[in-house]
Design a protein around this nucleic acid. Structure first.
Lengths: 188, 188
DNA sequence: CCCCCCAAACTACGAGCCGTAGCTTATGGA
DNA sequence: TCCATAAGCTACGGCTCGTAGTTTGGGGGG
């Protein structure tokens, strides 16, 4: 019964490792507990439920992603900035597939860290879109368009939807540039 | 032990109803069996596993979706055709959220109906893109771009990601038109 | 027309999952 | 030094999927 000194953050970190290595569905109480060298019920001292644990994974991922996107966009404008944040999001998703998947489970999320992380990501995107001259409702349309394209591309890629031999990275850049052309047209 | 006359298709239909009404995760052997007035193990006479059942839901959805998109695009060209198939896909997803979600679980799918359905959807899309003058690799890039944008938008919408008051339908049309502008630019 | 065999449904069960109840004990603060 | 808090534990219940082996209904062959 030696104390392991677990904390909420340590549990979330272990869960994130498992999610990235074996998929978000592999994040079970038993698996995380085993990884931490502890019996399953002990986790409930630090986490409310499996759902809460997965939300915590997503929250951490969103905050990390927002920070990375913000850095990537620094000093860039227009298409350069857009391509930079889009590539950053895709790179993050490919490097942390499990954590990125946790980002998408939004239905009925109450975790405020999660919501704050999501808002931070959108804020970076809106800042970039401001350079396209999009304002008001147009800016929201534009943000939804970019989020949709990037998230959709990455989701399909992670799901194995791009079976054809053609390089996904080239398709990704092509997609972002095509959308950027539409944004320029809408902004002028 | 009265025979219920179950068939593979009847089981898939019941599962689809449950998926659309209560979410894909609610499609359990127990739930489907109860809906059909049968004990859980009986389903294994018609279905290999829960995973196979969910794939069958997705396969049926893809075939139905491809047919609907094909009809929607008939007699239209360029942006009209693109907007028509995109709207059809979104409408289908909103009307059958559970079945549409089953469409996205692609990893390791062997069900040939599923793969055929996916190919049918892509074929309709490629036919529409031909009108934009996109050929070879450009056509594949374009197909991936449109799939990404539409699938991403719908996924985020179903997941509750569009909390803001602005009408999602308007954002959807805006997104498709913005991408269409990019496709025109690439095709010329 | 009858009978028989196949398969559809059943009961019973095992393993794995989440989460709760209640106990023991380590440890930091008074 | 002691004690209250909380971290870890064992034990359990209810849910899930899936298998094994049994019963029985009903359509096809004689």
């Amino acid at each position: 019964m030696a104390r392991r000194g677990l904390t909420h953050d340590l549990v979330v970190e272990a869960a994130t490792r498992i999610a990235d290595a074996r998929g978000l569905d592999a994040v079970t109480v038993a698996a995380v507990a085993a990884d931490l060298g502890v019996r399953p019920p002990s986790l409930y001292n630090h986490v409310g439920s499996v759902d809460a644990l997965r939300q915590a994974i997503g929250a951490a991922a969103l905050l990390e992603l927002a920070a990375a996107m913000s850095i990537a966009a620094a000093g860039l404008a227009h298409d350069d900035a857009l391509l930079a944040i889009a590539r950053t999001q895709r790179a993050y998703a490919l490097r942390h597939p499990g954590a990125y998947a946790a980002t998408g489970r939004i239905v009925g999320v109450k975790d405020e860290h999660f919501l704050a992380g999501g808002a931070a990501v959108v804020d970076v995107l809106l800042a970039v879109l401001r350079g396209y001259g999009l304002t008001g409702e147009e800016a929201i349309h534009g943000a939804r368009a970019v989020r949709s394209a990037v998230h959709g591309f990455v989701s399909l890629e992670l799901a194995g939807g791009y079976a054809m031999a053609l390089d996904p990275e080239a398709s990704f850049d092509w997609t972002v540039r095509a959308l950027a052309a539409g944004l320029r047209a809408a902004g002028s």
